[in-house]
């Protein structure tokens, strides 16, 4: 009887422990967000691009409507903004493979690998690092057909109840820069400058503030100007 109780307790412990690292909790939080708008500050350090720190407003409406409004030119990563959430909230689109535990900035996380079910999916592979304590994603490594591998680190503050980050850091691959001939004919350009550019890593840091969640945004707002 004692052995049966011990086995039962161990099984319960395992089940409870497994519950804390399931992706569903994070998805449930994401699903509570029907729309949001937020102020963002974008700091980009991308090879071959020199851009000052810019401010903008971002607007999102489930499932995949996303718009950036700014007086400045704002550079954002092509993958990992609204498309990742759209992928995550539909579990039919992938198979979960739980992996190892890993410490990320002093926080215990579990790796969950997501394998897309659709052979034509833009996302080839997604690795999600989920907090062991709360249903929040702290890192995503996204491999896509067109953009290569994008690593996204998340930090959370006042809007963590909605699973909305206060800071996102994207690490991206920037392809070899090809200089158009017409521009290369510059009095200060050199052959060395034109030939040494190979694929390099870049980063984009986005700071989010003043989130306004579920206040309602019209569909027409997202239409192209």
């Amino acid at each position: 009887m004692k052995i049966v109780s011990l086995v039962f307790l161990l099984l319960m412990f395992h089940l409870v422990n497994a519950q804390t690292v399931t992706l569903q909790g994070a998805i449930d939080r994401i699903n509570t967000v029907k729309d949001y708008k937020a102020d963002v500050q974008v700091k980009a350090a991308i090879p071959f691009i020199k851009i000052p720190i810019t401010k903008a407003k971002v607007y999102f409406k489930a499932k995949n409507k996303f718009k950036v409004v700014s007086d400045n030119i704002v550079i954002l990563p092509k993958q990992g903004m609204s498309d990742l959430n759209e992928f995550l909230v539909n579990p039919k689109r992938y198979t979960q493979v739980p992996g190892e535990y890993k410490m990320l900035n002093g926080l215990k996380t579990q790796l969950i690998t997501l394998l897309p079910s659709d052979e034509n999916s833009e996302i080839i592979l997604a690795k999600v690092y989920l907090s062991a304590k709360e249903p929040l994603i702290y890192r995503t490594v996204l491999t896509t057909k067109s953009s290569g591998t994008v690593t996204i680190d998340y930090e959370y503050a006042e809007s963590k109840a909605f699973g909305l980050p206060s800071k996102m850091t994207f690490y991206i691959d920037v392809r070899k820069f090809k200089m158009p001939k017409s521009v290369a004919a510059n009095i200060r350009s050199t052959e060395k400058q034109r030939k040494t550019e190979e694929n390099q890593k870049g980063s984009i840091v986005i700071y989010f503030s003043n989130y306004q969640v579920n206040k309602g945004i019209s569909d027409s707002f997202f239409k192209e100007d």
């Binding site: 700014s70 400045n72 030119i73 550079i75 954002l76 092509k78 953009s147 290569g148 920037v174």
Partner: peptide, 17 residues
């Protein structure tokens, strides 16, 4: 598009360009 094409596979350019 001619100017930004090199970067458009990984980046999006937003705002009044």
């Amino acid at each position: 598009g001619f100017v930004t094409s090199t970067f458009e596979q990984t980046l999006t350019f937003n705002g009044n360009i």
